[in-house]
């Protein structure tokens, strides 16, 4: 999948590439640990109805990790600058997995430029006690097992054996960047639950029913922390419902955001 034409903007001294395509209400999409989602078929559908803005988190898709970057908060502040620079208004903010966490962190800072929030199989909180592993330890799970936790139907997963060297290296780079943003505390910000009450825009959580990395129960706990939030569960989908069930995903998204 090609990224297509990329825009670039320099913020905080960081060369930030992003896709901007389509017209309509602005939709800011923050991808997850698997890397950019803009090249996926569901995104093309969204570009027919939205002005889709999809940046690449520093470190993903072969980009550099800035020396001073340590965690999700660096990403949050980069995107706070980004939405100011692009003068985004009245937009839908949607984040996938760690991108959902980032979106939630942005939303507790300010919702001024957004009209609604969508979190897809998002991490960011720790609902369980200290002895509970709320999010599967993706860095400590055998690749074969990880595949099963991530996908409802593993035959839909990208096949590592068929990837060329560049694609593999980009994937390995994505994994490093994901770790940088999420390693410790693992996949969550202990302070976030105490701040989620600040989210004052309509919020939808979309979850894959078979997500073994971040379960629907985790999603429900997340939903309960955000005032007025709704949650929909998509059958026969794992951690990436937008990839496994794009039609069901789009229909839920559009029913909420249109």
């Amino acid at each position: 999948m090609s990224e297509g034409k990329m825009e670039r903007i320099t913020l905080q001294g960081i060369d930030l590439p992003y896709v901007r395509r389509g017209s309509g209400r602005t939709l800011l999409m923050l991808h997850g640990g698997g890397g950019p989602v803009a090249p996926m078929p569901f995104a093309a559908k969204l570009m027919e109805r939205f002005d889709v803005v999809a940046p690449i988190h520093p470190g993903f898709a072969g980009t550099r990790i800035p020396d001073r970057f340590d965690n999700i908060h660096d990403l949050k502040f980069l995107y706070l600058d980004f939405i100011d620079a692009l003068e985004i208004e009245d937009a839908v903010l949607m984040g996938f997995s760690m991108g959902g966490w980032t979106a939630a962190e942005i939303a507790v800072m300010t919702t001024a430029r957004f009209s609604s929030l969508v979190l897809v199989d998002s991490v960011g909180i720790k609902p369980g006690d200290r002895d509970t592993r709320d999010v599967a330890d993706v860095f400590a799970t055998h690749p074969a097992e990880l595949l099963k936790l991530t996908w409802h139907d593993t035959s839909k997963a990208p096949n590592v054996a068929e990837m060329d060297e560049d694609a593999l290296a980009a994937m390995a780079g994505n994994r490093i960047a994901l770790a940088l943003y999420t390693f410790d505390p693992y996949m969550h910000n202990p302070k976030l639950p105490g701040l989620l009450h600040r989210i004052d825009i309509p919020t939808l959580l979309i979850w894959g029913e078979s997500d073994g990395l971040v379960t629907p129960e985790y999603g429900a706990a997340f939903r309960d922390m955000i005032p007025g939030a709704r949650m929909v569960v998509i059958p026969e989908a794992g951690h990436a419902p937008q990839a496994e069930q794009p039609e069901a995903f789009l229909s839920e998204f559009l029913a909420f955001a249109s």
């Binding site: 690749p143 590592v160 054996a161 060297e165 290296a169 390995a172 994994r175 490093i176």
Partner: peptide
């Protein structure tokens, strides 16, 4: 990344 990729393979 390029070494990690080889290990993944």
């Amino acid at each position: 990344p390029h070494v990690a990729a080889m290990i993944m393979k």
